[in-house]
């Protein structure tokens, strides 16, 4: 009985949406007006071992950093990297969507304008 309970717990933990939840850190950035200059943000973010993917949207002033499964990255670290690249973070949030989803969403929003 104990074994069954343990197995059930392990399986439910492994296959629950939480276990596979994507974590993307989405930052609103001031001053990000040129792709040539903002490349520093992307390069520094991609250099992190935790990073799965990075998306930069100049029009919406968004930098999104998708983390690899099981990886964590503090908001302060993200803010510090963006600050070092020469920009200011005005807001930061955690999204459970992957970068591809955020990209599609933002581009759809731009298409509406």
């Amino acid at each position: 009985m104990k074994k069954l309970l343990l197995t059930t717990l392990v399986f439910s933990a492994l296959f629950s949406p939480l276990a596979f939840a994507t974590q993307t850190i989405k930052a609103n950035v001031n001053g990000m007006v040129c792709a040539f200059c903002a490349q520093g943000i992307e390069k520094k973010m991609r250099a992190l071992t935790q990073t799965q993917d990075v998306y930069v949207n100049l029009k919406q002033r968004i930098v999104a950093v998708e983390l690899k499964d099981g990886q964590t990255l503090s908001n302060d670290k993200v803010k510090a990297i963006i600050k070092d690249a020469g920009y200011d973070v005005t807001a930061i949030e955690i999204s459970e969507h992957p970068v591809a989803h955020i990209k599609a969403e933002l581009e759809a929003k731009q298409g509406e304008k």
């Binding site: 990000m32 007006v33 040129c34 040539f36 200059c37 490349q39 520093g40 943000i41 390069k43 520094k44 100049l58 029009k59 002033r61 070092d84 690249a85 020469g86």
Partner: peptide, 13 residues
Amino acid sequence: QAATAGPMGFNES
């Protein structure tokens, strides 16, 4: 509307 091209790159570049 939100181009920069300063005379230096980002840190360690």
